[in-house]
Amino acid sequence: MDFPFVREAVKNLFSRSSCDMYPLKPSEAAEQYRGRIEYDPSKCINCHFCERVCAGGAISVVEVPVEEGTQITRTFDLSTCTFCNTCADFCNTHAIKLTKDYHMIGLKEGDLLVSGTFVKVAKKKPAPPPAEAKPEEKAAPAIKPRDDGKPVQDPSKCVYCGICAKKCLGEALTVDRKEKLWKLDEDKCVSCGTCEEVCPKKAIIM
């Protein structure tokens, strides 16, 4: 009689287990794994780009007016998130990061089920002082960046294509091709830098 498996069985009896022994031995996620979201409110400028691009609608914002401006609470709902990293990719100020932490377990309804979800931090935005800081009119012949971080246009380079106005999330820009007009609404602009990035002529300086 032939027992082809006996050798195998005996061999396996003495060989090492292939088990990772996970909870005993902590295991690290692979490089570039996209896990728990980390949100740095101190970097956020509230441009709302992340909410716009989020496929799952996982990001919500609560804005409460307080004395010194608006208190903005941005919440990432990890139970709705697909961990696509799009929000982090689009965030110009790198306020969002998907970490390698994969321990995301919600145990209870309410706060702890929100811990399968996840809440982070309120941001206190100073009242719009930049409104006052506009003595420097844009018509200066030598283009230099403004000190309040808002965009300036270089009329010699600009072709009035209107791309920046289309991409501006706050609808702060008006571009008129016929009139050769490039106008910035300072109150709406949040200095996100999107216009500078998209300008094909590099005509915007920030």
Binding site: Y22, A29, C81, Y102, H103, I105, G106, L107, L113
Partner: peptide, 27 residues
């Protein structure tokens, strides 16, 4: 699902890592 039945443990992720699922099951 929590609209219909009480959910005891929710493992987040899309997909969760096997380790995370294991954590959830141990819980």
């Amino acid at each position: 699902l929590s609209k219909y039945v009480h959910v005891d443990v929710a493992v987040a992720g899309c997909t969760p890592k096997p380790e995370a699922i294991m954590d959830g099951l141990v819980q």
